[in-house]
Design a protein around this nucleic acid. Structure first.
Lengths: 245, 245
DNA sequence: GTCAAGACTTTGTCCTGACATCATTGCGTA
DNA sequence: TACGCAATGATGTCAGGACAAAGTCTTGAC
């Protein structure tokens, strides 16, 4: 009944054992080796087979529960969840999104300069006179403009150049510089486009823009970026997955 | 240095000990007895004082970490996080939101009838010929129309009446009927209003609507509701808090 | 006075063991 | 046949201990 998954645990690795296990189970689900409705081995069996203690196995499975990948039912067991609830909101950039969707994104950097902005500094929890790197980009999908994006970065990331930005997404760049954004407050709205927005995004006055304002922090509460984006609403929608525990 | 919080543990209660502790710490933070930057007692001290094992205390604190209420730093301790990252996205209804914001929401129910809809049934993971209760409501804040909302409910909730809906929010009603929605996929977009939307929401053609489509499930993967809402964009924005672990 | 090594504190990981609670299954009895 | 109860098997909770790793602080040498 229960599906066995090939798992190898490397005890010499610095990666915690529970995370090694969670990662391999996650991969098994993503690749389809474990399919929705499949029953996982029970915790004791997994622990015995892998020579781990049950709390370690539990911690691994808890990671998957937290992500909504599996469901636990006391007295029954653990099974792979319905794929509808699989994907959770991720902190990714539009660039990554387009790449995954198979689009050919390109970027033109309209502005790249140091500024001071009290309002943004407050959002980032920095002192009001902090220097911020302002980046304004126009993002294309193929040859059609899709988004006009303004981002403000704290001093730690001022080394990012125009050339960097034309080649990859902002979040990928931030991550290569050690940023580990884990939490972001987003506000999403809509309005008629301003004149520059109409010009850049090739919009008529009656065609609205979808706006997204976001501030991202790492796990220690340090500011990572503040963004103010607007999208062509007819070509874009924002997907979020909300869960409450 | 560390702030002691009055905590009482009731071992005869059916509520898990770790949850009792987490709840009281959460309350201490919410009420301001613990303030951002304050250091919590360390895990061993808490465990000793409350006669709990350290893993139990850890599990309690983990709950707070998961909600972004506190930060843990090895070798340093656990401290209350910056309030900027406190609130997380919640599964609430517009009605609840307006109540909290002090508005005086009112609702008129435009439609309340059983329908079949293959597309919605698929989103809810029900059979295509399932009977669904379609509810269309116009929500006012004070005397101004704010949102036009369509919701489809699976058979378990067909007992909800027009009168119920005029008095409280949909999510409150669902919860009184035992629903425990915990996960929802939302898609947010914008577009010019349709003619009926313009009429109901008193919009001009150039004023866009913000659209939100949502499907909610409970922790066992059962469908709870599917909603298709549109809001006056000039009066409303959607806040989401995203975190990735 | 400055800097580095080491002691100390605190959280992170992992183990073993025990009992509680819930759901299901199957058997026995009415 | 139908119902109820007990056995079984799974996850949920909790204890207590051990060592690892990271950050901070003190101490001592130069």
């Amino acid at each position: 009944m229960a599906v066995q998954v090939g798992v190898t645990i490397d005890r010499s690795s610095p990666v915690p054992l529970y995370h090694q296990l969670a990662e391999q189970l996650r991969e098994a689900i993503a690749s389809g080796r474990l399919r929705p409705g499949d029953q996982l081995e029970n915790e004791m069996a997994l622990a015995g087979r892998l020579n781990l203690a049950r709390p370690t196995v539990r911690q691994a499975i808890q990671e998957l529960v937290d992500r909504g990948l599996v469901l636990r039912r006391r007295g029954v067991g653990t099974m792979v969840a319905n794929p509808k609830v699989h994907r959770r909101a991720e902190l990714t950039s539009l660039y990554d999104d387009l790449c995954r969707a198979g689009g050919r994104p390109s970027t033109s950097v309209l502005r790249h300069e140091l500024v001071r902005d009290e309002r943004v500094a407050a959002a980032l929890d920095l002192s009001p006179d902090a220097d911020l790197l302002l980046i304004v980009r126009l993002r294309y999908s193929g040859d059609r403009p899709l988004a006009l994006m303004s981002n403000w970065l704290p001093p730690a990331y001022h080394g990012i150049t125009r050339e960097d930005l034309e080649g990859s997404g902002l979040y990928a760049l931030l991550r290569t510089r050690g940023a580990r954004p884990v939490v972001a407050a987003q506000s999403i709205g809509a309005r008629p486009p301003s004149a520059p927005e109409r010009r850049h995004l090739l919009l008529k006055a009656a065609e609205p823009v979808l706006t997204m304002t976001r501030t991202a922090f790492d796990s220690e509460g340090n500011a990572v970026e503040h963004g103010d984006h607007c999208y062509r609403a007819q070509d874009y929608s924002i997907e979020v997955l909300i869960d409450q525990r």
